[in-house]
Amino acid sequence: MIYIIENSLENLLTAVFESYKNKDKQVSIFTNTCQTSCLEEIKIIKTDGEKANRVEKALRKILNYSYNHIKLAFRSGETNKNTVIFNYICETVNANDNISENFANSSVYSFYEIFRKVQKEVHHLKGFIRFSKTEEGIYYAPFSPDNDVCDLILPHFIKRYSSMPFILHDYKYNKLCAYNGKESKIVYEKIPPLKVKDEVNFLFKTYYQTVNIKSRQNIKLMKNYMPKRYHINMPEKDELL
């Protein structure tokens, strides 16, 4: 059985409700952008606020704080995330118990993995984001994360920079988090990343190259810790700089 949903948590929760109501087994979830095989039965699930609410309420009762793991996992960029979360929710409802740490269960472990990936990327980005200073004196950071986490890292930078204006530009999920030194705003718009010329970037590249110990070269380890997909927005990795 295939369910087609829109990319929203509410819609996914509605799908859970429908699957219990109709006793559908072996459900895979696809978003409307996906191609599906024509051998299986397909149902299109429309978001229903009330049904979604009932599922959320039931889950919160079982999971307490760890319900937030579901919200976090839903930000995942993995293509099968909807099915993984769906299976985890069903497993939880069936057990009627908080099984979030039952790692020997494959539904739980798959869920744990995508949830951890989101959590890890939030942490990585706190380090890997690079700001450049524009002529207007605004610090601008373009980036392209795996998961939809732009607004989750915003509070970190607000606390850190307090009165410094900056913009976090997620050009993959088309989100801009702007902070003017007092308040923040999230804008959804598709804009290509800007190129900013900033002398300090050049100085940092010099620093990065100098602090390396050549006799201990270990590029594989470097790439393990700092995956290549993040290099594109890092001045120290910009060969043209």
Binding site: H123, K126, G127, F128, Y208, V211, N212, I213, K214, R216, Q217, N218, I219, K220, L221, M222, N224, Y225, M226, M234, E236
Partner: peptide, 10 residues
């Protein structure tokens, strides 16, 4: 927080 990694893996 680690911000970058040099080619020696540090």
């Amino acid at each position: 927080i680690c911000h970058s990694f040099t080619e020696d893996g540090r």
